[in-house]
Design a binder for these strands. Sequence first.
DNA 1: TAGATTGTTAATCGATTAACAATC
DNA 2: TAGATTGTTAATCGATTAACAATC
Lengths: 260, 260
Amino acid sequence: MDEDEVGTVDVPEATVARLPQYLRALSTLAEAGLRTVSSEALADAVGVGSAKLRKDLSHLGSYGTRGVGYDVEQLHRQIADHLGQTTSWNVVIVGIGNLGHALAGYGGFASRGFRVVGLFDDGAHVVGEVVSGLPVRPLDDLPSVLRPGEPTIGVLAVPAEHAQVVCDRLVAAGVTSVLNFAPTVLRVPADVDVRKVDLASELQILAFHAQRRAVRSTAAAPAPTAPAPTATTSVPALQRSRRPALGATGPVLDRVGEVV
Amino acid sequence: MDEDEVGTVDVPEATVARLPQYLRALSTLAEAGLRTVSSEALADAVGVGSAKLRKDLSHLGSYGTRGVGYDVEQLHRQIADHLGQTTSWNVVIVGIGNLGHALAGYGGFASRGFRVVGLFDDGAHVVGEVVSGLPVRPLDDLPSVLRPGEPTIGVLAVPAEHAQVVCDRLVAAGVTSVLNFAPTVLRVPADVDVRKVDLASELQILAFHAQRRAVRSTAAAPAPTAPAPTATTSVPALQRSRRPALGATGPVLDRVGEVV
DNA sequence: TAGATTGTTAATCGATTAACAATC
DNA sequence: TAGATTGTTAATCGATTAACAATC
């Protein structure tokens, strides 16, 4: 560790993913009038351990003051710098369906320095419509909106079937950062960065854990000697689990193709 | 590894997060008429290494056939089982703003076995409105919609300021799985499972990497002996990086409170 | 039997955590 | 100086990966 310039030192991915949370917590603290904060207090506000927080900050070359803590404003600036929050980023949204619509109007983007500068869709019924103050344009207009030299993030909110094609067009137009809401794997050149948000997956993961809790609590029941007692007998739960076991409903088959 | 019953063996978190992707890929393969698939091919479709896939499946106690591969339908059933996809899950959405609206109409939920059974909001202007076929009800109606015995997932799409209060009410009503779209840390009892989706964070993480690429490519430029050449001279890029350096725009401060 | 592909082993890597010496 | 809190070290844990023996 020598140079301290932003972007010089390597920051672990897990740390990067937490930086936005720290930043947000610091904003809240600053608004509350706090000038200084300890790793303990900040970590707490974000719901992580203080050791992890300090480790994370150490990757930024951040300097707190021993015995005192961190200067809230300075640390905020430092993290914002690392996240590129000093620059305003342009965002284009492709696919103005249900979700694209919502994203176009999402206040959380603007407040963190992201400016939605273009909405795109090739559906005849949407093109031309004005959404959140911006006209929906055909995909062909992409190049005219993407100013080379201005960093632009592409948000993909199209159905899975179209995701790859649309992504290709974004890349062709010079976009190198893509946020993909379609449940598909996108193939992109090595210099393009793709992040994926899969809403249904999130529910599926929750369901996995919930089922597990349910099964566990059932499994913990003593093997019934007589015919099993009625429905949901209270059972010695293992760790977590308050819900009764799942009532079996008809099987459900996964389908492809639907999104947004 | 003895018993093979779903929910018995421990499955690593990283694996759980990939199961929905495998499931989806298997659906696609099945639709394409494939009866059998090798770990190589399936892994490929999901964008992971085949070793990782096989390791993941081994946690489920899955049995493929050496020399042959996996039976597409059987593997699909097996994973669906583990994910609790055999049961239909109820979902309630709280906060019918921009995002809640979109989620209520999101086709990707239904197709994966999630049924939206209730929409809630306390805003005078939304209550009573019908969204995607469901009436928006006041939060007080929560208990009447949540059938004890039916596993229900709560989706939080309210502004950050209200997230904790609303979450408390969900928990009080018996919800033990929460998907949180508000950029706040939720405090919940140990038996409640919370997952968070922070849309702005995703952009921030992309911005971090993009900035890094930009800085790197600039840093790789030979120290100019004469006054630096104009603007974006082509520069020996390190690995990735095609974009010019960021044009500095005014600083942007983070704010709290806005969501959805 | 020969070829293919699994399930598992062992090595490696990255992330988390607790503990503490450094230092304000 | 005494108390507080950082930044870092070292131990631990979990996840990834390559390689290969088992076996269809």
